[in-house]
Amino acid sequence: MDVFLLQLLNGLDKGGAYALIALGLTLIFGTLGVVNFAHGALFMLGAFCAVSFNKLITLQKIIIDPTKTTAWGTPLEVRTPYAEAMFGDFGQWLVNYSVPVSIVLAIPVMLIIGFVMERGLIKHFYNRPHADQILVTFGLAIVLQEVIKTLFGANPIPQSAPDAVRGAADIGAMLGFQAGAIVYPWWRMVYLLFSAAIIAGVFAFLQFTTFGMVVRAGMADRETVGLLGINIERRFTIVFAIAAVVAGLAGVMYTPILPPDYHIGMEFLVLSFVVVVVGGMGSLPGAVAAGFLLGILQSFASMNEVKDVLPGIDQIIIYLVAVVILLVRPRGLMGRRGVMEN
């Protein structure tokens, strides 16, 4: 039972990340009809917002100490962080909480990136075939990756969770199991809750605001909304920017789990596309449900008991399930009629 619960928790956590990226992908596809292969790069850019913020607040004042030398004979550099020197305890707190605080930086940065990307490039491909859209967005993703690699190097850059949520929680003891039977990292639980909050926020925004209502109407019938005199294109640009923010925030909060490097977005992109297809192209609840479903399945498929019976199943389970679902339900779990069918 404890092993089952542990894998379930792990699957939900994984699914949270998949769902967040898939949600953004679906938003863009549902509104603009664009297959955005640069969406993983947005996740990566978000992660590097956290890295940049951390670098900024840990900038160090370098003083050359001529009395001491390095092992290779050059004068020793003495480094003191500016933030700590200038702000004292607050500076230390800022360094400790750099990942969650960097959200404040990531939101405007990702909004601008999303806006520029959509206005500068994506809008020119609205009426082009999906193959063109895939090529141009994939190319853009590679360019963004190379830019980040040039600026930050190819190695992963570790980011720490705040001290208060570092380490693991003994959930087993809380639930009445044997102590130490179900241990799960605090930050992963924070990430799961964060994913749930962002997903709920996006749904609430679309469901309960006038802007959201127009967007939903546009997703259902763009032409009719346009005929009513509503500038749907402007709203869709904002939706693209919101999707960029969602992907970016998913990236920011993921940095303590996986040290980010320039390639981190690509690792999620393919899986997220499978999630979107399984959930149903253009269906937001479908993307979220499929994200969690595939995360849980992937987690259970990695159990030794399962792998003993079906070796290698952990590496193909997601694709296997995708094939089966598409055979049984060609539109995916909650796909709408007419989407990607022409």
Binding site: K14, A181, E267, S299
Partner: peptide, 23 residues
């Protein structure tokens, strides 16, 4: 106890680490 193969470049290893906890 066990020797489990992981795909190269797996990224998130959590699903391979959790079975270690109760092994």
């Amino acid at each position: 106890v066990a020797a489990v193969r992981t795909p190269l470049g797996a990224g998130d290893f959590s699903q391979y680490i959790t079975p270690v906890l109760n092994s």
